[in-house]
Design a protein around this nucleic acid. Structure first.
Lengths: 112, 112
DNA sequence: AAAGGTACTATGTATGGCCAAGTACTAAGT
DNA sequence: ACTTAGTACTTGGCCATACATAGTACCTTT
């Protein structure tokens, strides 16, 4: 039980939420997402992102289409399905509740 | 990949953070923690809490002393160690960063 | 002594993030 | 034409946590 490990655990599920949000804003492919996540200081590696995208697709939350690139191999451009949109809405609520609950716990003063 | 599952994943790591916070405010035993977590709408069951407390103890973040109860078996009252206090401080930063990063992602407007 | 409640323990399952190695395609250098 | 480097995506295995479930131990009440 070290710090690094706990930080990893804290990210669980949140990544999925962030990815769905990014995709909801327009067609993107994996490298776009990695860039945006990195900018937001959420470190992610390929081995995490690609399996996650596969899970999302298998669950019918996202879909993709191949698009040719003029500087490398073709890319999978992802978009949200209707189901994915509904799911994202639920996650919004879940996340807000979680932040609120945590704030309640962590901002409580020492009992007198 | 259903909603309930994702909600469980989102909680990972956060529970540990909340528990440490609760213990940091004064001596408590398991049922006290369960009550406070439930009040904050963070649902936890015994099967999750007790193993977590054991992990925290084995890592030297918390310690406990037995205290007799006048209405049942004796209880383990937990307190934070110095190490636990330092750890909690780091988690505070980690959590704040995570919330900030998530906000950055989820509040971004659709690209024009 | 029996019944019920409280406090804690132990075992097994599932999931997701991560590492590491690998495939496939394109573009540029020689 | 062949090699090298870079980009995009895939796959298999490992680990830690949350949870369900069952079980142990102790105390009080009747």
């Amino acid at each position: 039980m070290n710090l690094e490990n706990t930080q990893v655990q804290m990210r669980k599920g949140i990544l999925e939420y962030c990815i769905l949000h990014i995709i909801s804003r327009g067609e993107v492919y994996a490298s776009d997402m990695l860039e945006e996540l990195t900018t937001a200081k959420i470190m992610v590696v390929e081995g995490t992102l690609y399996p996650l995208l596969t899970r999302l697709r298998k669950s019918g939350l996202v879909e993709y289409k191949w698009v040719e690139s003029n500087s490398g191999p073709p890319r999978k451009y992802y978009t949200l399905t209707d189901k994915g949109n509904g799911f994202l809405g639920s996650l919004d609520s879940t996340w807000k509740d979680l932040v609120k609950s945590t704030k309640l716990i962590t901002s409580k003063k020492v009992k007198s």
